[in-house]
Amino acid sequence: MPEEFVTIGRYLDPTAAHVARSVLEAHGIEAQVMGEFTGNLEPVFNIFGGTSKGGIRLLVRTEDADEATAILTEDV
């Protein structure tokens, strides 16, 4: 059965997304950054009437979501 991942954060800056990923991994939580090559275009899309909720997404396993959110809230 494949693991399910959920988005716990959205970023416009890929560096910030990777810093958050590194913090989580230092706490033993697997994290993934998705959309880093298109996510920083979101302000451009929204200028032209887009309603995108894209951005650069930080994902963790569903079962780690609460702990990951708590870690980022206290560490960032």
Rank of each mutant, 00 (worst) to 15 (best):
M1S: 04
P2D: 04
E3W: 05
F5L: 08
V6A: 05
I8D: 06
R10W: 02
L12R: 12
A16V: 00
A16E: 06
A17Q: 06
A17S: 09
A17F: 05
H18F: 12
V19L: 15
A20T: 01
A20Y: 06
A20S: 11
R21Y: 06
V23F: 02
A26N: 12
A26P: 02
H27P: 01
G28N: 10
I29S: 02
E30M: 11
M34G: 01
M34A: 05
M34H: 09
G35I: 01
F37K: 14
T38Y: 07
G39V: 01
G39W: 05
L41C: 04
P43Q: 08
V44C: 07
V44D: 04
I47D: 15
G49Q: 08
G50T: 04
S52G: 08
K53G: 04
K53I: 10
K53R: 08
G55A: 06
G55E: 03
G55S: 05
R57M: 13
R57D: 11
R57C: 13
L58H: 11
L59T: 07
T62D: 06
T62K: 09
D64I: 06
A65T: 00
D66G: 07
A68H: 08
A68F: 13
I71Q: 05
T73V: 13
E74A: 09
E74N: 02
D75A: 15
V76N: 15
